[in-house]
Simulated assay, not measured.
Amino acid sequence: MALTGGTEPRVRRAAVNLFADKGFHGTGIRELAQAANLSSASLYHYMGTKEDLLAGIMRDALTRLLDAAGEIAGSTADPRARLAKLVALHVCTHALRPAETQVVDNEVRSLSEPARHEVVRLRDAYEEQWALAISDGMAAGRFVAGDPGVTRRALLEMCSGVARWYSPHGALSLDDLAAQYAALALRALGCVDRASGADLATAGEIVARVWGLPS
């Protein structure tokens, strides 16, 4: 059942925070209802099952990432610029939406079929944009990777880790952090060129738009 009115963001926000902090299985219905300022009976009425709520959160976050990655893919044919933008997208999203991204990264195993199948399909479609950027760069002689799949997974893990430690009060701005990660990713693929500021700024604008954040 769809959530309605002002209840939806309140329930989603409470669930995202609790699932990120305590895990899906570690979060009880009673504490979820309390965090959302609802009775347990009302919570069931609005959200369906707890798994329905988890699957909805994960589908929403992955759809936003996939839409953004598709926009990046259509913005440039240059695989170097494309990969740099994808890195900036991933870093900025994990820095600005750490709870949602940690739920997506950690809780796929908590889903049963067919919800897991749909979430994995979205995740794989997102990662395919990274795979295409890497393979296009290798075909053009811009990138070198012994095993492109291993390289892709390593880069994604590197960027995802930002969700665990990033603070807006740190020494680096998020733009500078994204630029450093993009440079690391390109060097890992044997590319000495640096991503342009315009490339990374475009990625930041896309992140802000797909998440409804101030740009």
Rank of each mutant, 00 (worst) to 15 (best):
M1Q: 06
L3H: 02
P9D: 11
F19E: 03
D21P: 01
G23L: 02
G28M: 01
I29W: 13
I29Q: 12
L32S: 08
L32C: 07
A33T: 06
A33Y: 04
Q34F: 03
A35V: 08
A35W: 09
S39T: 15
A41Y: 10
L43P: 02
L43S: 04
E51F: 03
E51W: 04
L53C: 08
L54E: 00
A55W: 02
I57H: 03
D60I: 06
L62W: 02
A68V: 05
G74A: 12
T76P: 06
A77K: 13
P79G: 11
R80S: 10
R82N: 10
A84I: 10
A84Q: 10
L86I: 06
L89K: 05
L89H: 03
H90Y: 02
V91F: 04
V91N: 07
L96A: 03
A99W: 04
E100H: 10
E100Q: 12
E100V: 05
V104F: 01
E107L: 07
E113M: 12
P114I: 10
H117I: 01
E118V: 01
R121V: 01
L132P: 01
S135C: 05
S135E: 11
G137D: 08
G137S: 11
F143Y: 11
A145Q: 05
P148I: 13
V150D: 15
T151F: 11
R152D: 05
L155Q: 14
L156Q: 07
L156R: 12
E157H: 11
C159F: 00
G161E: 11
Y166H: 14
Y166F: 13
S167D: 09
A171H: 13
D175W: 11
L177V: 05
Y181H: 13
A182D: 08
A183C: 06
A183S: 13
A185W: 10
A185C: 10
A188K: 13
L189C: 09
L189M: 14
A195F: 09
A195Y: 10
G197T: 01
D199Y: 07
A201T: 14
I206E: 00
V207D: 01
R209S: 08
W211C: 03
G212S: 01
G212W: 00
L213T: 00
L213H: 00
P214R: 15
S215N: 10
S215C: 06
S215W: 06
